[in-house]
Simulated assay, not measured.
Amino acid sequence: MKKVLVARPTFPDVIERLKQYFEVDVNLGDVLAQDEFARRIADKDGAFTAGEWVGEKELAGAPNLKVVSNMAVGYNNFDMKAFDAHKVLGTNTPNVLNETTADFGWALMMAAARRVTESEHYLRAGKWQKWSFDAFLGADVHGSTLGVIGMGRIGQALARRAGGFDMRVIYHNRSRVAPEIEARLNAEYVSKEDLLKRADHVVLVLPYTKENHHTIGAAELALMKPTATLTNIARGGIVDDAALIVALRDKRIAAAGIDVFEGEPDFNPDFMLLDNVVLTPHIASATEGTRRAMANLAADNLIAALGEGPRAGNPPNPINPDVLKK
C-alpha cells in the first residue's frame, strides 16, 4: 500500500477513509517541528497538511512524494516553484468554506463596530453600575459603506450580505470582476486608495502573496476615516500588525477585528493592551460542518491524486495541474 502522512489530528472518520486505500501515519500530537515533519514525509507517497511549510528541503528529502493535500484554501505554506521542480502536486480546499468564512467576517466586523468585546470585558469586570446614553457608542453598520479588498468567492459572499444591511459596496481587486457580478452585488470597483478613504468598514479577504505583503500598512491606515473599522479574515502578513497597533492605540481608526496574524500562532503582544480590537485565533472557517467538508475534500484530493477512488488520477482541486501531465 502507498504511504501517507496526516500531519495534524483530524476527524477519525476521515482517517478511516484514508486507511481504506493507504498505510496512514497520523500525528495525533502537537504541530510537528519542521525537522520532524521532514523526517515523517521522507518515505511517503502523499501528505495531508494544514499549514505545514513544504519547500525545497522537504520535497528533496521525499523522493516518493507525489501529492501534498492542504486542508485550507490558502497555500502560502507551499513553495510552488519547488513543487513544480520536483513534479509534486499541491491541492487545496476552495469553495466549501466560502459562506462560513463570510459569516464570521461579518460577525467580526460587527463586533468591532459595536464594541462588543470591549463592553463584555467591562461587564465581566463588574464595572457596569448604571445605564448611560454615551456608554460604548459604536458605529452603525446598516446604511454605511463596506469596502472589500479581495473580491473572490469569499469577498463576493461578504458583499452579498451587505444588501440586507442597505450598505453601499465598493471593492478593490487585482482585476475587476465580471459586470454581471458587479450588478448582482451592486458593487463599485475603485482604487485601493479611494476605497480606504471612503469605506466605513474595510474587510480584507485577499490571498497572501509576496506582492500582497503589508497591503495595509501605516500609509494605508492613515487614509482611513478615524471612525472606520478594519477586519482581516485573510492571512497574516497582509496587514502590518505593528502599524495597526499604533493606529488603534492612537485612535487613527476606530476599531479592528483580527482573525489572522503575522507569525501566528505567535502574535504581537501589544494587541492585548488595546480595548478597540477584537481578536480571534484563526477560526473563520471553524464550524463542524465546514471543517468536516474541508477535511473530506482534502482527503478526496489525496486519494484521487494517488490513483485511488472514484476520481482516480483526477483530483478535484489541483493547484499546479501541469504536473499531472508530466
Rank of each mutant, 00 (worst) to 15 (best):
M110V: 07
A111M: 06
A111L: 01
A112T: 03
A113Q: 02
R114N: 13
R114T: 05
V116E: 04
E118M: 14
E118R: 11
S119Y: 04
E120W: 08
E120F: 14
E120H: 10
E120C: 09
H121Q: 05
Y122T: 12
L123W: 03
L123M: 12
R124L: 00
R124F: 01
G126Y: 04
K127S: 14
W128I: 08
W128C: 12
W128Y: 14
Q129E: 06
Q129H: 11
W131K: 11
S132Q: 06
S132D: 03
F133I: 12
F133N: 04
F133H: 11
A135E: 04
F136W: 06
F136D: 03
L137S: 15
G138Q: 07
G138V: 08
A139W: 03
A139G: 07
G143C: 11
G143S: 08
T145G: 11
L146Q: 10
G147T: 02
I149A: 15
I149C: 15
M151F: 13
G152D: 01
R153C: 00
G155T: 03
G155A: 11
G155M: 04
Q156I: 10
Q156E: 13
A157V: 05
A157G: 14
A159F: 06
R160C: 01
A162Y: 13
G164E: 04
G164W: 06
R168T: 12
V169R: 05
I170Y: 09
Y171I: 02
R174I: 00
R174H: 02
S175A: 15
V177P: 12
V177R: 15
E180I: 09
I181Y: 08
E182C: 15
E182Y: 10
R184F: 15
L185M: 11
L185E: 03
L185F: 12
N186V: 11
N186I: 11
E188A: 15
V190R: 11
L195W: 09
L195N: 07
L195E: 04
L196M: 12
L196W: 10
K197C: 14
K197S: 15
K197Q: 15
K197H: 14
R198F: 08
R198L: 10
R198C: 02
A199E: 01
D200T: 05
H201I: 11
V202C: 08
V203G: 07
L204A: 15
L206S: 09
T209F: 14
E211K: 10
H213G: 00
H214C: 09
H214M: 03
T215E: 08
T215L: 14
I216P: 00
G217M: 12
G217Q: 07
A219K: 05
E220D: 02
A222E: 01
A222C: 05
M224G: 13
M224S: 12
K225P: 01
T229S: 10
T231H: 04
T231L: 05
N232V: 01
N232H: 04
N232R: 01
N232T: 02
N232C: 01
N232K: 02
I233K: 06
I233D: 07
I233V: 13
I233H: 09
A234L: 06
A234M: 02
A234Y: 03
R235N: 00
R235T: 00
G237H: 06
G237P: 02
V239L: 10
V239R: 04
V239K: 09
D240Y: 05
D241A: 13
D241W: 05
D241R: 03
A243G: 05
A243R: 03
